[in-house]
Every structure is written in C-alpha cells, then in structure tokens.
Design a binder for these strands. Structure first.
Lengths: 149, 149
DNA sequence: CTACATGCAAAGAATTTGCAAATCA
DNA sequence: TGATTTGCAAATTCTTTGCATGTAG
C-alpha cells in the first residue's frame, strides 16, 4: 500500500537481466501499436519465433514491462488485460477497437477535473479513474480481423 | 447482436417465475445501496437466511436481474462483476469505494460529448464508454469494513 | 402436467505459484 | 558460481454449463 521509493520492489530501480525471451516479447510488442492480450502475444511468439517461450513467461515479462512503465495496460470489456508499448509518458485514455485492438488516444480533461472535484467533495482518497471507450473501427467494420492483431 | 423487440430472449418481455430464491436475492440486494459481488451476496444469503441457495443460482438470478434492468452492474478493478439495485433509470457512472462498495453517482456530460465526437471523427461504430472511478471512502479510511458490505 | 428454476459437479478461461532445471553475468 | 529467469504442471478465482431433480402455475 505505501510507496517506498528506492525500495527493493520499486518499479524502476530493480535491475533486470537481458534475456532472449524478454527481447522477443519486446520485439513482438513493437510490431504493432495495438493493445493485445498475453494469450494473443503468446500465440504470435510461438508461431513466428523459433524459440519455445512459455505462457507463464509471457505473463511475467508483460507484467514486468508494465511495472517498469515500458508497456501500458488496458482492461478489455471482458476483463482481460491488454498490453502495448508505451509511446508517450504519462497516463492516457483510449478509444479501442474491440476486434483488433487499434487505439486512438485522448485526454479527457473535463472528466479528470470532474472526478477530482467529486472525490474531494466526498472525501475519497487514493482515487483512480478509468475512462475506456470501446467500439468497432472502420477497417474491422468492413473486414473483421484483416491483419496480425 | 441485433435487437428483436418481443423476441424470445428480449430482456423485459420474458416472463419470470416468482420463486423464494429470487425474492431472497432481491431482498438482500435491497439491504444496501452498495455494489457487491455475487460471491459476497452468496455468503450473506447463506449466513443470514435459513434457505440453502446455491452459488450458481445467485449468479443466474443476478444476471437475470441485470438483463431485466432491475439491477445495475459495475466492473471492479480486478474484473469482478458487482451488482446493486437500480435506483434511477438510465446509464450512470460511479465513484466507488474499493473496500466497501459505497457508490456516489455522477454523469460525465463532458466526457460523453467528447467520446461521441471522437468516435465520429475516427469512424468507430457500436461505441460504448466506461467511466469508472475507484477510491477509498472516508469511513473505510478510518475503519476499514465496519458493516455489512 | 410441464416449462422453468435450482443445485451440484465439472468445465472454462485468465492468471498466478511452486519448484526444479536452465542460463545470464 | 550464483542469483535470475524460465517452463511445466498445478492451483486460484470468477463464472458458466450439463444434467437430473424440484416446483410454480
């Protein structure tokens, strides 16, 4: 619960090894700007790569990347966690295609102000907000799942 | 996917039986305005009621209530589905205490306009937005989980 | 009576954990 | 070498399904 900067499990301080598996996950993540699940990435890694990575490692590596702020995550409508490489610093929100994961970023300024005000007004602390928008992108509307995902 | 008013699985038309189990779930839901999970409700039903309801039925009844718009649902931060009786018609958003489920409703007018504009701009269809805010309410901050939940 | 409701056990799906074997530094 | 990382199988957690039995109307 409490933040201990520099502590043993602090996000950016822990030193990581540089392994082939980690690099592979990072590379596959880099092939698309879309949000993809651990399971999807696992399938791509298994099929497009000669290496035999385990599903467990994919989950572990993705989590580490998210902890290190290298990847950003998003919850799909069904609760699955989706990942993609972080391109810009800071917290953002997305309009995501529920079929292919294509994402259009935006910053809901008004909502952020409103929620901040609401929280203060009702005395809530440790407030986190989620503003997610899902839809079907024009490409998928005419031809569902055309490419990689 | 398509809407067929009056069809066999249409939400408000299907006739339901009036059973003791359904009434029990409805009554327990009525004891609080907080959002609670099926598992939490199951525990309450098992302990506070002489009847032996099954977890499956709790899930089924809650889903039916949600389909009939009698209950409204919310996704917890960990993906669990939370329920509570619907008090007002229409879609609302909430600032929810992640410890006790207490909810403060609000309508993010600005965000709704912004997302509508964004969707149109990028050609997305079937757009749905989720604006969820989680925090710790003042009561839980000083005395975590004091009452029923 | 008969369709709908219920319970239990099993199935599912996403994710995590235990632990021994592999490997980076 | 020595601590991390990895993989597999098993465990977890939430939720749904199959199916035989119970019950409202």
């Amino acid at each position: 619960m409490s933040a201990e900067p520099g502590g043993p499990e602090s996000a950016s301080t822990k030193r990581r090894r540089n392994t082939a598996k980690q690099r592979a996950v990072l590379e596959v993540l880099g092939t698309s700007e879309r949000f993809r699940s651990a399971q999807q990435l696992f399938v791509v890694l298994r099929s497009q790569r000669p290496m035999r990575i385990g599903l467990t490692s994919v989950y572990r590596i993705l989590r580490t990347l998210a902890d290190d702020q290298i990847a950003e995550t998003q919850r799909a409508e069904d609760g699955e966690t989706l990942y993609r490489l972080r391109t810009e610093p800071g917290h953002r929100h997305y309009l995501i295609c529920r079929l292919c994961g294509r994402a259009v970023g935006f910053i809901p300024t008004a909502i952020e102000e409103q929620t901040t005000g609401l929280s203060a007004q009702h005395g809530f602390s440790d407030v986190t907000h989620y503003v997610d928008v899902y839809g079907i992108c024009p490409q998928c509307l005419r031809a569902p799942v055309t490419d990689d995902r």
